[in-house]
Amino acid sequence: MSNEAATVRVSLAERSYDIQIGEGLLDQAVEFVTSRGGARHVVVITDANVDELYGDALADRFVDAGVESHVLVVEAGEPSKSTDVVADLWQTMLDEGCDRQTVVIAVGGGVVGDIAGFVAATFARGLRFFQVPTTLLAQVDSSVGGKTGVNLEGAKNMVGAFWQPDGVLIDTAVLKTLPEEEFCAGLAEVVKYGVILDAEFFAYLEANADAIMDRDPAALRTIIQRSCRLKADVVEADEREETGLRAKLNYGHTFGHALEAATGYSELLHGEAVAIGMACASRLAQSMGRIDAEATDRQVKLLERFELPTAIPEGIDLGELSALMWRDKKVKDGEVRFVLPTRIGEVETVASPGDDLVLASMRTS
């Protein structure tokens, strides 16, 4: 496979942008940003883990190119997705003299991207921003599509905005430093794309699981490029979740978000919660006669091959999880809506299948 960067175009009229994917692309970050509208002042938002690896070095590249640069660092982890952290960032940006011409660059995982995007969407009524995702999960999912936001207590991503980036720069080389559990968590979203949209891609993941787990560069580029293309197709058709098509991307998330809330956003990585959620959703679909046992088994086996959990951890009250689902953004007209598979490669939204079936789907025995 060629080492040249691949480009996935997200076509959204005047909000269209490119996702560039390849090895060593951080070296081209200044050109990537400045060629898309210019930049005289950039604010790099990153977290304490990524700052030393990539955040500070990226800001230095802009300084060397004559672009004023500031680095703002948040604590790593989901608890940083809070209104308090965002308020601190707003105030710091004001103190540093940021204005309507400032460009925000998110360097980090999904938490950083969500926070930085929300800050960009709201400071001075909207700043241009770029995504430089450094985790697999962010590269294949959260950096693409323009969803930004923060959590409220017991409700994930409840405050936010749709704010598309001006570009997404994905350097696959950064995955070499990604801890194993973070890498595996990202694979949950990759598996999701196969289940909801592309049976051939799901089969590719099954056939190439060893190469993927070994972080083979060609395999990584393939799964990232395909995941981004699949998500871009959905975003292009339903940017703001108005037709219901984009809801497909929430497969496993109704269960997963409730799990994250029940564990205080600290015990499970997002991808781990989604993996458990997909297993629950598939069991729910199976109990309703929507899919057969083989489809559930294939998902569970692939998730477990990628070293992801598929069962709800012991000690979690299933009734509490069920109650937390009613606080999800996908509740509509007084009904909890679940994205459920009809086969590998296709899903549909189902309203309130019944508490007994939902509770049963969360049990593995």
Rank of each mutant, 00 (worst) to 15 (best):
R221I: 14
G77S: 07
K248Y: 00
T46L: 12
F129Y: 06
V174K: 05
A273Y: 00
S322H: 14
A285I: 01
T134R: 07
V159H: 07
F338W: 05
L220V: 07
G277W: 04
V71T: 15
A57V: 14
I223D: 08
A65Y: 07
R305H: 11
G108W: 02
G97C: 04
Y193H: 02
G154I: 12
M93F: 04
F118Q: 02
G55I: 06
D56S: 12
L205Q: 03
G66V: 05
Y193M: 03
A199Y: 05
L268Y: 08
T92R: 05
A155D: 11
V74T: 05
H41E: 07
E78F: 11
L318H: 08
A6R: 01
T364L: 08
Q286K: 04
L318R: 07
A76W: 08
D356W: 06
A120Y: 12
E182D: 05
S322Q: 15
V63D: 15
F202Q: 07
Q101N: 07
G110C: 09
K301N: 15
A59L: 13
V74M: 14
A323R: 14
R327N: 09
A247Y: 12
R305A: 10
A6C: 10
E260Y: 00
S361T: 10
L308H: 03
A173F: 07
V50N: 11
V195F: 09
Y204D: 06
Q28D: 14
G149V: 09
V174A: 03
R283N: 05
A5S: 03
V71I: 02
V44M: 13
E239S: 04
L205F: 00
G22Q: 04
T222Q: 13
T46Q: 08
T102A: 09
A293D: 13
G289M: 15
A232T: 00
S266F: 09
M362V: 02
A258V: 11
A258G: 12
I170A: 11
M213V: 15
N3R: 14
S282L: 11
P133F: 00
P353L: 10
G108T: 06
R327L: 11
G167R: 02
V191A: 01
T254Y: 10
S142M: 02
S142V: 01
R15I: 01
A124H: 11
G194Q: 01
L89P: 15
V350W: 01
A209C: 08
A258T: 04
A323G: 12
A203K: 12
R15M: 04
E346M: 13
A279Y: 08
E335C: 11
F32R: 02
D64Q: 15
T342Y: 03
M278K: 13
E181H: 13
A218S: 07
V107P: 07
I276V: 15
F129D: 01
A261V: 05
P313H: 07
D333L: 15
F306C: 01
V119Q: 03
L230V: 04
L72V: 12
L284A: 03
G110S: 10
G345I: 03
T172F: 06
R246Q: 11
D356L: 09
L357R: 10
I196V: 02
S352Q: 12
V119F: 09
G334H: 08
E304F: 14
A59Y: 09
L249W: 00
T310M: 06
F118G: 03
V358F: 03
K330R: 10
G22L: 01
T349S: 12
V30T: 10
K330S: 02
E272A: 00
R15F: 03
E14S: 11
